[in-house]
Write a protein that binds this DNA or RNA. Sequence first.
DNA 1: GACTCTTTGGAGAGCGCTCTCCAAGGAGGT
DNA 2: ACCTCCTTGGAGAGCGCTCTCCAAAGAGTC
Lengths: 337, 337
Amino acid sequence: MLKGTPTLEDVARVAGVSRATVSRVVNGTRNVDPQLQETVRDAIERTGYTPNHAARSLVTRRTGTVALIISGAGGGSDVFVDPFFGRVTAGVVDFLRTRGVHPVLMLADTDRTRAEVVEFLRQGSADGALLVTTHAAESLPDRLLEAGVPVVLYARPGQPLPVSYVDLDHQAGGRLAAARFAEIGRTRVAAISGPLDVLASQDRLTGFRAALARNGFPYVPTVEGGFTATSGAVAMHRLLADHPEVDGVFAANDLMAQGAVDVLLAAGKRVPEDVAVVGFDDSAPAAACRPSLTTIRQPVEQMAAKMAEVLLTALDDPEERPRSVIFEPELVLRASA
Amino acid sequence: MLKGTPTLEDVARVAGVSRATVSRVVNGTRNVDPQLQETVRDAIERTGYTPNHAARSLVTRRTGTVALIISGAGGGSDVFVDPFFGRVTAGVVDFLRTRGVHPVLMLADTDRTRAEVVEFLRQGSADGALLVTTHAAESLPDRLLEAGVPVVLYARPGQPLPVSYVDLDHQAGGRLAAARFAEIGRTRVAAISGPLDVLASQDRLTGFRAALARNGFPYVPTVEGGFTATSGAVAMHRLLADHPEVDGVFAANDLMAQGAVDVLLAAGKRVPEDVAVVGFDDSAPAAACRPSLTTIRQPVEQMAAKMAEVLLTALDDPEERPRSVIFEPELVLRASA
DNA sequence: GACTCTTTGGAGAGCGCTCTCCAAGGAGGT
DNA sequence: ACCTCCTTGGAGAGCGCTCTCCAAAGAGTC
């Protein structure tokens, strides 16, 4: 009957009304006579009309999508090996879907991809950006802000910036770990930190050390890891070589804790009897590995959802000032400590 | 100098040329005098122009995005607990980025969300769809096809449909597992299958059983699991209760294998000495857990990338016929069998 | 009954871009 | 020197939608 996909125009013709009226019915703006509404709906039904997204967003300046940018994860196809990013994604998706907003997933790991991200947002391909970045030196927050893109960060920015973010009280997490070691009477504890250009890593370590110092232990042997299981294993080797008497290890994430446990076991140590291990994050492998990991829980999904919520709020009210939401970590007791 | 974001019009005015010429320079279509190009580029630079995506796609009928639909994963925020979906996502993202295409992530777990997905595509919010679905009864392929949306599936459809897909030869995977048990002399093997409404589960089991039958073992005790670690543990309990003499277990994915191993260990069995365990997928936990899992590798990332590639090809040439690409599984030898 | 006010439908002007024509000018052939 | 062909820039018509006006009609007021 009609060529191509039906447009508003077509529906209007079939219903015998103007384009404006159909638009009003579709969008529920203003009052339209109920009977007329009926006619229009009928025409929509008959023509199989669906509003064209591009045309609509051309005039509304809204796309109904946001960019979920994962930066500094090493890129490549193994981003999701770290369950952290999967959890963030799940949390974001799960929240956005309740609001009819769709996330487009972007990896920003190189200068080129970073530029593409900025370009993407400047084009108005998405209404705002959710930026998950670990490295303190990340340039995207700044560039996005400069481009006038509404953005919310996961983790506070490296330098002070007027931008909203959600974060965890990582220092409190470190303190929680220290408290656990104190509780089970460990006196020769060491730490496997995350990359030190990641603020969260610094904070976890700082909190951990400060709490230990307060308990009378001024020195904490520390090796820097890279948030991977392998790096945790390597770090544990070093620690064991330099400080064979160690009886407690705080690893800055679960993956590294897992690597450490493996090395410990292989070295004939019992976990937690000889060496207690506390991880961080409480990701799926923490519960699954043997011995299961005592860890500091970071409510990633909730934080991610909050991040999305803050962005949507900002989108609705551009005048709103930047907000920060800080979550509290929690000790999860399992077998390893 | 100019109000709001600069448009083509603005650039044209600054450069002293027509809108068409600027458009040609931006898009690199047709020949434009090099000197004029220079002028135009300069004007673009000076105005800080960025093409408006909505306007462009209104006329080109292309958005430069595709929908990545994950269906039947139980939905909710724990989709990515199963590393499988993370791997698919990573593979897709990793490929698409090389082609400047962006994926929009969608979860389709209810009738409502399924309808939203169809609506989304019909609106032209994305150029095509990548559908990752496990359940054979999934209605989306059909509905998407009917809506004229270019779509590629991960895993063959439940009923014959003129649609492209990538898949694994799951039966061959089952055979590989059976061969391994034969190789290490296991004669009382059992299986923990995936949900039987998933074709891949059926196929893995069929291949496994057929190969065993060929070796002279007609009966394989089987319990159906749900692809989660817990379901694997539950199944293993059942198996152990009914068939305490079992000396080999084939689990249809690594998560279930992990759960099975835990139960086996807890029951005082040694793995692999008393009971050998073979998993499926070769996901990250397979290598990480203790004992590490001998498993059947499914090259998920590559398959996902291929799926994306097939879709982009179809997008470029709508006349092309549906294609199927079948990947071969591979035995990965580790500690558990 | 004349007036104002409110409600509701239509007309039409864009939103910013692409792309099809068309015209102008220069190169090449005879 | 004339004609044809090719190259390259401009004009302008949309793409499908929203939204601001404006007008008509009905309701309420004195």
